[in-house]
Design a protein around this nucleic acid. Sequence first.
DNA 1: GCCAACGTTGGC
DNA 2: GCCAACGTTGGC
Length: 139
Amino acid sequence: MPFWLFKSEPDTWSWDQQVAKGEAGEEWHGVRNYQARNNMRAMKVGDLGFYYHSNIGKAVVGIVQVCRESAPDSTTDDPRWDCVMIKAVRPLARPVTLEECKVQPGLEQMVLVNNSRLSVQPVTEAEWAIVCQMGGVEP
DNA sequence: GCCAACGTTGGC
DNA sequence: GCCAACGTTGGC
């Protein structure tokens, strides 16, 4: 099963807001990048992902789950853009910062570390396990 | 607030 | 199809 990472500026949409949506989840709209969109198109309901706060915090703060497959983005009429819906699963026991990821053995290839600009990223199973451990939660 | 990196656009 | 210009992202 593939794993993912969703990036959001907490000023725009924070983990707390995501949690407040509960089981209903929230449409991950606003992505206007083909790579990120293609990653979302590859997702299946039930896939797990990290929730990362960019700019403020710069840390993985929680775990989310895909609860609807990719469908047209309701915030645009442009047919090119799709998005999934995600719901919060649980917070990390402690946030895992970008700084920590950069020096953590095994995360050298992580997209978050190497391509900071991609807003929806794939995460390998090995990376998933490492970050979960750093965050104090079961993979 | 700055700026580097990257992606997209559009003229040719 | 190339590439310069531009806009955006996100770390610092």
